[in-house]
């Protein structure tokens, strides 16, 4: 099963990182970064299947593509922000991780503005 492979390689790389952390920390960080990228790539293939299902359901329920695209973008931004922030935190750079998370939140907010405006318009129309 996929998860067993991932956990196995995770343990191996953790041991390697620990071995290199003492005298060569920069290689340790690059090693853990490489593993996070590889696991991310494996998972992205799985996520694509789920997203395809979302698209099919949206077409059946004839929801407009604008909502789904924004939702997808927000999920993508969240994924990458989380990835970057975790790697920086792991390297000991808490400040940089915080800034990356802050930037991610702002960009998600910017993405969400059109939908918020739409919701408010709909509500206003409903009121007598």
């Amino acid at each position: 099963m996929e998860i067993i492979k991932i956990v196995g390689i995770g343990f191996i790389v953790t041991m390697l990182v620990l071995m290199m952390k003492k005298d060569r920390p920069e290689f340790a960080i690059q090693l853990s970064l490489t593993l996070t990228i590889i696991i991310f790539l494996i998972i992205l293939n799985k996520v694509q299947v789920v997203l395809q299902l979302f698209y099919d359901l949206a077409e059946k329920a004839n929801i407009s593509m604008m909502y789904l695209n924004t939702l997808l973008k927000i999920i993508g931004i969240a994924y990458i922000t989380e990835f970057g922030a975790q790697v920086c935190k792991d390297a000991g750079e808490g400040a940089i991780a915080g800034k990356i998370e802050f930037a991610g939140k702002v960009m998600v907010m910017v993405m969400a503005i059109p939908i918020i405006a739409l919701v408010i318009d709909t509500i206003v129309k409903l009121l007598p």
Partner: peptide, 13 residues
């Protein structure tokens, strides 16, 4: 899928 890269980096380190 890229696993060999992991061990290459560990080796170089």
């Amino acid at each position: 899928m890229g696993l060999d890269l992991l061990f290459k980096i560990a080796g170089v380190g």
